[in-house]
Amino acid sequence: METNLYSYQFRTESDAVPQRSAPIKLTKLSFPLLRVIDLNVSIQDKQILKDINLQIPEKSITCIIGPSGCGKTTLLRSLNRLHDDNADINITGSVLVDNEDIYGKNVEVTHIRKKMGLLAQRPTVLPMSIFENVAYGPRIHGIRDKRKLYGIVKNQLEAVGLWEEVKDRLKSPAIRLSIGQQQRLCLARGLAVSPEIILGDEATSALDPIATTKIEQLFVSLKKEYSIVLVTHTLRQARRIADYVAFMYMGELIEFGSATEIFTNPKHQLTRDYIGGSFS
């Protein structure tokens, strides 16, 4: 393992050519929105994540890749404190969002979660109408005004390209949508509480290729406004849309860098093997 892994800092696209010892220029991207510091997660005394240090740059797509069971999903869920309810899970270290440690004392979890829209592996629509699914978050946060809610729902459904398809049946149960539409609806629901970050946990793995393409295009267009972190199992997807890539193996963050860097010239042997398809 290389010793400088944990102190890795960001490079812009122009720095893509690896210069190991060259001093790293500070750019806008060096001030990340989300920082993971010394994160250790263990489930029933089995360590799942080991000393993860990671900085997620804003307004770009970061893909977390790695073989099954390497801790990608655990890491993603730690960012949202979704492990809170599981008493078996022990977490140390910190995750800073907007310079606030979400694992700090007295931190109120709901406003942390509001900052992050989560897109699960399989689309999970709430047992309500299409409209109510998107309006759910805003309602939770106290918006009662019907016209305001309608405005939010319309905007978000437009943002995910679903408005034209569903505008005539907003009141019908969301479960009747196709699975691809459901996933876009879930994305709209996440966006409706105006988060800063979108977390996706293999968000396209249950979708057909056409629906996958739509979601991927959405991510690319959404990165203008949001920071996107995706766990993905398909390298091709990471190649298609990632700006930055984090490679994980056996609970450790092996390498992090811009997508070009990781895919064309990975520094670590493990990364090279994984990218090259030696294991998956």
């Binding site: 999970t124 939770i140 509480v193």
Partner: peptide
């Protein structure tokens, strides 16, 4: 997952239970 969907938009546990 259904509970998590609700929690992840910033709902409290009680709101998630109720709604």
């Amino acid at each position: 997952e259904l509970r998590e969907v609700s929690l992840s938009v910033g709902a409290t546990k009680w709101q998630t239970i109720k709604r």
